[in-house]
Design a protein around this nucleic acid. Structure first.
Lengths: 236, 236
DNA sequence: AAACAATAAAAAAACGATATATTTTGCCAA
DNA sequence: TTGGCAAAATATATCGTTTTTTTATTGTTT
């Protein structure tokens, strides 16, 4: 199903080795992961033949997956000249951050206005689980922890999940993924200084108190703080 | 180029008969038009073989185009069971309308805050051109006028064009296209009663006066009015 | 002699046709 | 009537051909 393909990013293909999904889905998820994680660098040419050999998947599924990624702004298509990984720029990152704040603020306010008790419980749970996962896999130097990334995305998507518009939610997810890529590319060296867990706790509290203004301010600050780090890394 | 494919909807392939675009783009545009205009009904099975013969284009470009349309929510992919035209529902239309209002209000306010003099001129021009095109091709009964549709989209996109985020603008365009489909499907019999030109003039005036609150209210009312007509048609 | 242009060769992408795997449908038996 | 099996239809994937683009080499001009 298309929705499953688009929504789940990292957690796909759990334990089942012989995935029943189509090869297109598999190619889509692998390519998406490889681009978001920074393994495939911006601007890099995506030669069909190369990918075909590497992923052991035919050209059609690869092409379809690349077409799909094009809509996510992770891949660019140059008519008659193939595909390449979408470029990054400071300007685009500013736009991304700005747009994300606009959309997520709206979604958060709607969620706080409409969210059920069951939703509150999901928020608490998501925050708790996130707090229990270390940000980095190593304690002395920073190594991105995929589990943390997954839990982090889940927390942020949970607090806006009851906004009443699956369309808006989809847009937010898309922008979130684009943002991860910028985070990964910028090295993330500066992060550990901030106590991110505290920020999440504060957001969680404001959400549970149904204090929309406070929650929105905290969320936007949370994003903008991260943004300045990414920006400074990008400029160097 | 991907951008050209995604942005221009109706006005593509102007006079040049031997289009230099890829067949994928051509298939994408034709299918998009056929779905938006309602020629291909919601839920209709899109058999590759059938489309291949009909459009005289190979299977690969057709599949790629369908994948692309999937991201626009105009086509649904059922894993291993092919593609079909996205279904419509009252619930989805409500969401669409709501989301559109949220996003376009934000975009309009930003445009009004940041728009240049040159932008004001573009707004005036877009409104003028729209006002000169008849809504219906026939005077006694309603026949959708493609020229009017194009000018209408152009007017609405122009007033939000200086929002400072090409990402947000892309989302708005996508939602606008989805909305056209609902309009076309609901017959549009009720419309001519309203004086839509007046509504556009009022919006235009408020925009030029840089009265963000008034412009936003007028725009949202404009959309919600149309929405109630579509809703009533959909319920029948 | 160096730089630019033109042509040719190689590489890559787009397309279309064929083959394989999956699903659906129809029929027969229990 | 229902369950299962088989056959047909349909979707997905691979492969080979054609067209386009890019690069390299050679020739010409300044």
């Amino acid at each position: 199903m298309q929705n499953e393909i688009l929504n789940e990013t990292g957690s796909a293909a759990p334990s089942d080795s012989s995935s029943p999904e189509s090869l297109t889905s598999r190619a889509y998820l692998r390519l998406k992961q490889d681009i978001i994680s920074g393994r495939l660098m911006p601007g890099r040419k995506l030669k069909i033949e190369e990918l075909r050999r590497q992923y052991d998947i035919g050209t059609s599924p690869i092409r379809e997956a690349l077409s799909l990624l094009t809509s996510d702004h992770l891949v660019e298509r140059w008519d008659q000249r193939g595909f390449r990984v979408a470029n990054v720029s400071e300007g685009e990152f500013s736009e991304l951050l700005k747009t994300r704040c606009w959309l997520e603020e709206r979604a958060l306010r709607e969620s706080i206005a409409n969210g059920s008790d069951e939703w509150e419980e999901r928020v608490v749970l998501a925050n708790h689980r996130l707090s229990r996962i270390p940000r980095s896999e190593a304690s002395d130097h920073f190594v991105a922890n995929a589990k943390w990334e997954e839990a982090h995305k889940h927390f942020h998507m949970t607090i806006i999940s009851e906004c009443g518009s699956s369309i808006l939610l989809k847009f937010c997810k898309q922008l979130y993924d684009q943002n991860i890529r910028y985070r990964q590319l910028s090295g993330s060296k500066a992060y550990p200084k901030r106590d991110i867990a505290d920020e999440h706790n504060a957001i969680c509290q404001a959400v549970l108190a149904r204090d929309a203004n406070k929650a929105a301010t905290l969320l936007i600050d949370h994003y903008k703080n991260t943004g300045t780090f990414v920006h400074s890394e990008l400029t160097v």
